[in-house]
Each structure stands twice: as C-alpha cells, then as structure tokens.
Computed example of a mutant assay.
Amino acid sequence: MGPRKSVAETAATRDRVIERALALAAAEGLEGLTIGRLATDLGMSKAGVIGRFGSKAALQLAVLDAAIERFRLRVPARAVGARPGAERLARAFDEWIDSMAEAEGYAGCFLTSVASEFDGRPGPVRDAVLQALAAWSAYVASELDTAVANRELPQRTDVEQLVFELNGVALAASQSIQLHRDPLAPTRARRAIARLLIAP
C-alpha cells in the first residue's frame, strides 16, 4: 500500500501543480510562469515543483497539454451528439464561445493566447500549439466536407477558406471578450458563424 499511495500522491501533486500553473498562465502568459511563484502559491519548495517535470519547458508543455485536453473535452466532445456537418460545427463553435465568455472558462482563450505568445518563438511549445491548431482545423474541415456532402453547403464551397473565416471569427471573439470586455462579443460571433454555415 505504501508505494501505491506514494505514486498516487505524486500524481495528485503533479495535477495540482498543473492546475495552478494553468490558472496563472491563463492570466499572465505561459512564458511568465515561474517556478518560484508556483512554489509559493502551492506551499512547496522550488525543487518540489520542478522535480515533477524536470524543466520549465517540460512544465510549460504539461500545462499546454492540460489546456488542449480541456479544450477537447469542452468543445468537440460536447458537440458529438449533434448531427454531423453544419449542425455539429455550429455546436462546437458555440461551446468554444461559451468557454471564452465564462468567468472560469479560460481553456479556449488560453490556447489562442499561447498561439499569439509563441507564434514567433521556435521550439517545442510552438510546435505543440501548431499541432493542436492543425488538429482543430482538420476537425473543422472534416465537418465542412460532411456539410457539403449533405448539401448543407454548396458543392463549390472553398472549405479551406471557410475554415480560415470560421477560425477568424473565434479569434476575434477571444480578443473582444478578453481585451475589450465586450458583452456583445459572444452574440456577434454566433451570428457570424451562423451566417458562414448557412448555404446562400
């Protein structure tokens, strides 16, 4: 029982560090995350914090992985029950916008913030962000392909262009919600997405 308890406690502590780091990074940026601040907030030693990851870069990647998983569970996973195509995609974007607008829902906004923070910084964090965004765009493109096949959108639809425009709406919503604190941003974003997903 002793070793098992030790492994469980280690995993629980690691999860607690990641959770606090995610909250701090959402407010101050992933690069601004410091081992000292985490240690103080969690009542741990710096060695105790970094020892669970090995380096600050590894901690950043663990935090990013947690944010990506939270996004996956909040956005595409909640849209699974909707009809494939335009309806499912509208539901997914709706969930994303909801997560941005909620007081504690920083996952979606966190990913777009990290993308901006690391867009000009080559390295493993940027690579992980690119991979996550590519997976999301592939998901959007797949649902758009289904919408075209189901005749919800015209056969001539430029799917890559529409992926670009839909993601652009989400980015604009994120900025309007976080930076401008615009209470109408979620409504405006939903209107824009609905317009893009309705066949002319």
Rank of each mutant, 00 (worst) to 15 (best):
P124Q: 14
G123Y: 02
A172M: 13
V140G: 03
R151K: 14
A149R: 14
E95S: 02
M100A: 04
A115G: 02
Q131V: 11
G54P: 06
V125G: 01
A132R: 09
V80P: 01
H180E: 12
D98E: 15
S99K: 04
L64G: 07
T157F: 00
Y139N: 02
R91H: 12
M100D: 07
L153G: 11
R74A: 11
F164D: 13
Y139S: 02
Y106A: 14
A135I: 03
V125P: 00
F110E: 05
A170V: 04
F71K: 02
A132V: 10
E143F: 02
A103P: 07
D119V: 09
E95P: 01
A57D: 12
E160K: 13
L153N: 03
A141R: 15
V159F: 08
L179E: 06
L111E: 06
L133G: 12
V75I: 09
P124Y: 07
E102S: 10
D98Q: 14
P183E: 09
D119W: 10
D127W: 02
H180M: 12
A115W: 06
A77K: 08
R181P: 00
Q155T: 14
D94P: 00
A103V: 11
S142C: 08
I68R: 08
A86S: 07
C109Q: 14
N167A: 06
P154T: 11
G81C: 01
A101V: 09
A135W: 06
D94E: 08
A79E: 05
N150A: 15
V169N: 10
A138R: 15
A86W: 01
S142D: 15
A128V: 00
A115V: 04
R151W: 11
L133S: 13
E160C: 03
E87N: 07
A128C: 00
K56I: 08
L166M: 14
R83E: 05
R78P: 00
S99D: 13
D127V: 01
P84W: 01
A132Q: 11
I97E: 13
A147P: 06
A62D: 02
I97N: 11
L162F: 04
A141F: 04
W96A: 15
R181D: 09
A172Q: 14
E143M: 06
L144A: 04
P154F: 08
A149W: 03
I177P: 11
R88L: 01
V163W: 07
E117V: 00
V114D: 02
M100L: 15
S55C: 06
R91I: 09
Q131I: 00
L133Y: 12
S176K: 03
A77R: 07
D65Q: 10
V80C: 05
E152V: 04
A77L: 08
E160V: 05
E143S: 08
L73T: 04
V163G: 08
V114E: 02
E95F: 12
V129D: 03
G81W: 02
L133V: 07
A141K: 12
P124R: 15
E152R: 13
V80K: 15
A103M: 11
A67S: 13
R72T: 12
D127E: 11
Q155V: 10
L133I: 04
V80D: 12
A101N: 12
A173F: 09
P183Q: 04
V140W: 05
